[in-house]
Nucleic acid binder design. Structure first.
Lengths: 339, 339
DNA sequence: GGTTGGCAGTCGGTACACTCGACTGCCAGC
DNA sequence: GCTGGCAGTCGAGTGTACCGACTGCCAACC
């Protein structure tokens, strides 16, 4: 085994040990556990070299070393095998297949529950980004007169999502007029996308036309304005992983970020076309995520990339397992949504 | 001012001071700030009496005193005026009325956004419980054939909520058969509640009848099984309020509790018929909520109690402001939903 | 050149003693 | 019943000493 190879093994041992213990790793521990057949002094030399090259850092002089983001990056690129399912225990695999066997919810609920599943098996926070509403075609349009002056506009999309918007209308509008408007709206939207801008719709009844126009505009606006849907599962894990964060405050701001959704969605979108990917600590430009890693896997519906599932944990996380989890879950989710 | 009255004022001063500073309050601080015209020695005597009666406690001998749950209870009962809006700053009031002026979302979204509003103005976590699905009547039923073998069943309820369920069916089922089933289902459900159990529905087409039955059963089951909808806003505040919790772990378990929803829903339901209510620390039997208080106000739709809005914060919270916030928000929300 | 054992040096953590300051409790006097 | 004063208690902060766990370096060895 030549020097470079051994240094890789030393780094690997340090990462694995540190993931397990959350403590700085000493040269002795590596020499003892890694089975390299060299003394701790040699390991020490390698460790100084690895630190010089930016893979390791020392919290303080008389302590062991911990991996830097760059160290994790090397570890993931070199040692983590995204195709290996072996990272998953039997129990976890069972949970996944059981979940997808029993799944029969509408799209939104399904994606939400999927985030919960992923959080459960990885014991970290999980995110699921749904298929963009823009791309889906309208299958059905409803205008429901809930009570005088109040109409609920509903668009059922081909992917099973449902867009809703409440409209306040003239209280004198009759249910027949609403029905007329519904037909007009259906004519304009069914089999189209919500991207289609509203157009004048001359028919017999101007009030009905008005309602159809309003409803179209409202649904159109909503589809325009809304970012891709994001579902977060197991956010409470972030609070439980407090120790990983520099300050108690940063865990709170991270949770806030997840609540606001939009930042996370754009981050995930940016990484979407890279296939299974890992983004470590300072690699993503969002400061609040400095102490976190994001392990993502896109899922496809009938061959098209539709969305992403991901795990959000501290940089000190079990990448092997997270990769295995997102890989299997995304595959199964894509399967389910394709058939 | 007689002794009992003064002791009340001492307690009040301690609670108010402690809410502000989060520190144990000393006799000197009370004597100085409360304007009682007595010396700190007298206050000390009152404080020992208040401690004997269980309203105060001492973290350690050489420290000031902090209120017990019982102390907060007395404070709330005696000094907090739920009808007073004065607890709210102008800025907060403006946020509330602006929010409700601009609101035009479907029920679920509206309630969710309301929880966000309440969290924003109180700077604590907020919960909103929606109207129970059981009571609402069905206004519209859709069976949408998304793709061969996959039907989405949708029920639009009179309160603007939308129940959805995905059904896997015979891939050979034609869209005409789905339409027939939709009509049969509509006949059974429209103007009824989802409580109505499925009944055999003999018509021309057994396949359509089968689908109608399956869809009915699925929607019925979902309505049965699902608890009242709960919307949580500002959960990140809980992480920010860490100091209020005994251990870092307990903040995480509290967040988990909110994710699971069911416990919180039943707790809130139990307190629903008490009008505006405050539940302090150990008063609610749920151990995870030992360090929290819950300030609730039910909202009514057309005179009927429909749900609840609430603030969940540390026992050391500004009850006056929380009460004012939930009172105005619940009133406005009820207003909006009634018209 | 790479590897090794040994040894000095560095630093965090803990234990202890001490002081300071902020309270309370109590009591005698008003 | 209130008050001022005083003793007592305890937490928090500080300085010191010490132990233990590392690393860094070096001379020796293969």
């Amino acid at each position: 085994m030549d020097v470079d190879e051994r240094r890789g093994e030393v780094l690997r041992a340090i990462v694995e040990e540190h993931i397990q213990t959350a403590q700085p790793v000493s040269s002795q521990a590596v020499a003892r556990s890694a089975g390299l057949g060299v003394s701790s002094a040699t390991v020490r030399n390698d460790m100084t070299a690895l630190e010089r090259d930016g893979y390791l850092t020392q919290p303080h002089t008389s302590a062991g070393r911990i991996p830097t983001d760059r160290g994790y990056r090397y570890f993931v690129d070199r040692f983590a095998d995204p195709t290996a399912v072996r990272g998953l225990h039997g129990e976890q695999q069972r949970a996944v297949s059981e979940f997808f066997r029993g799944a029969h919810a509408a799209l939104e609920d399904l994606l939400h529950e999927t985030s919960g599943l992923l959080a459960r098996i990885t014991r970290h926070a999980a995110v699921v980004v749904g298929p963009p509403t823009e791309s889906a075609r309208v299958r059905r349009v409803d205008l429901v007169l809930l009570q005088p002056g109040q109409v609920l506009a509903i668009a059922v999309l081909s992917n099973g999502a449902v867009e809703r918007e409440m409209l306040t209308v003239d209280p004198d509008l009759s249910s027949e007029q609403v029905a007329t408007a519904e037909q007009a709206l259906a004519a304009a939207l069914v089999d189209a996308t919500l991207q289609v801008p509203p157009a004048p719709r001359p028919s017999g009844d101007p009030a009905a036309d008005g309602l159809a126009g309003t409803a179209h505009l409202a649904l159109h606006r909503r589809a325009e304005a809304s970012h891709d849907p994001l579902y977060v599962g197991g956010a409470s894990r972030i609070a439980a992983e407090q120790e990983a964060f520099a300050t108690a405050r940063s865990a709170a701001t991270l949770l806030e970020l997840l609540e606001q959704q939009v930042v996370v969605v754009s981050l995930v979108r940016d990484l979407l076309d890279q296939g299974v990917s890992v983004s470590i600590g300072s690699e993503h430009r969002i400061d609040e995520l400095r102490d976190c890693s994001l392990v993502l896997a896109p899922y496809t519906i009938e061959g098209e990339v539709a969305g992403t599932v991901g795990v959000l944990g501290p940089t000190r996380m079990d990448y092997q397992q997270a990769l295995a989890a997102v890989a299997t879950v995304s595959a199964q989710l894509g399967n389910l949504l394709s058939r």
